[in-house]
């Protein structure tokens, strides 16, 4: 069941990006709930007028390359972008990103899709691509400008962000890859049909049978295959659609709140969909120390979870400062009200 290539591989670079604008949950509640009721998070990130999955992916990718040391972008044989909000229905995001980072033309550019786990599946594929010897480097990105119908429960959390990982040989890596496992079944918890602007969701399907079952099964099976236990990990990062779910799934699996705290960004930036758990991991790598083990588990509606186990190497210490840290983007904060948010997220017609 465990997914692991014969050749040793790891993350050679990583990079984060979060837009500058923040919409407080109190603003959403003010407009639709007369300010009443509980809200799932404090605030969420909002992409600016000139931002989309391409621009956010480019910046995260540049940060990943800055941390990779002397990697020639022409040696990157794959640029893969996972998202559910690619700017074009037909025309790849990945070719634009590859061009902007100088990886063209000898590169396998492609876009990936699977709700909130499109980023981690691109990471797994990149591990296979490098691990098989087909490529020396492959770049995997999770990126989204998530859309939510006005007044829908998702409007409190659907946000924007991007995280990029350059996969390469283990001897150059800041974190080596120990193993991965995916768990997927057909679940009607969340979907968006063609030509629709906003997604729909299946009420009570989103919790126990979807998020919890898939993450718990993926993580338990992975740890069983690797012979690891929760205390073996310094940090654990789970997909974070709200604050409650990742903490609850951590406890079910036997992890402590301390283990998930460092990678839990949702209260400050919202649910960045395909970037959600990958951004949690960039926040952890920003503060990780050599020898730390980290567990990552994504969740994508529809549904599936990819679980990965990595171990941080000595190289981390000199690489962390080579690009802006996740926290630098989180604290670069400009609050907007619902009216500006409506303009920025293209909800106003003129």
């Amino acid at each position: 069941m465990v997914l692991k290539p014969r050749r040793e591989v790891g993350f050679v670079g990583y990079g984060a990006y979060v837009p500058r604008y923040r919409l407080p949950n109190a603003e959403v509640a003010r407009v639709w709930m007369q300010g009443q009721g509980s809200t799932p998070i404090k605030e969420k990130s909002v992409a600016g007028l000139d931002e989309d999955v391409v621009t956010m992916s480019v910046e995260a990718a540049r940060n990943a390359l800055s941390r990779a040391g002397p990697v020639d972008p022409n040696q990157i044989r794959a640029v893969w972008v996972g998202s559910e909000s690619h700017p074009y229905a037909v025309k790849p995001t990945s070719t634009i990103v590859a061009e902007a980072i100088g990886a063209t033309p000898y590169t396998q550019a492609a876009d990936w899709e699977f709700a909130c786990k499109a980023g981690t599946e691109a990471i797994q594929a990149a591990i296979g691509f490098v691990g098989s010897g087909m490529a020396r480097y492959a770049l995997a990105i999770g990126s989204d400008v998530a859309q939510a119908r006005p007044a829908d429960a998702l409007e409190y959390t659907a946000s924007a962000g991007s995280a990029a990982y350059l996969v390469g040989p283990a001897r150059e890596a800041l974190a080596t890859f120990e193993g991965s496992l995916s768990y997927a079944t057909d679940i009607p918890d969340f979907w968006r049909r063609a030509y629709q602007r906003y997604p729909s969701h299946g009420g009570r399907f989103t919790g126990q049978p979807a998020y919890f079952t898939h993450i718990v099964e993926a993580v338990r099976s992975l740890m069983e295959c690797l012979g690891t236990e929760p205390p073996d990990y310094r940090y654990a990062v789970f997909h974070q659609p709200n604050v409650k779910f990742p903490i609850s799934v951590a406890k079910q699996l036997g992890f402590t709140v301390e283990q998930v705290q460092s990678g839990l960004l949702v209260n400050e930036i919202g649910n960045t969909y395909a970037a959600s758990s990958p951004l949690g991991l960039t926040a952890v790598l920003d503060i990780a120390e050599p020898g730390d083990r980290v567990l990552l588990a994504s969740y994508g509606s529809g549904a599936g979870s990819d679980a990965l186990s990595i171990r941080v190497t000595d190289a981390i210490l000199e690489r962390q400062r080579l690009a802006p840290r996740t926290r630098d983007y989180v604290t670069r904060r400009r609050e907007v009200d619902y009216a500006i948010y409506a303009r920025y997220s293209n909800k106003l017609v003129r």
Binding site: D50, D52, V54, T55, P87, Y88, I96, A100, P324, R325, R327, D328, Y329, V330, T331, R332
Partner: peptide
């Protein structure tokens, strides 16, 4: 969609 360079204030470390 046309993409190109713009400039922003340099990111400050938190």
């Amino acid at each position: 969609i046309v993409y190109g360079y713009k400039f922003r204030p340099a990111i400050q470390p938190a």
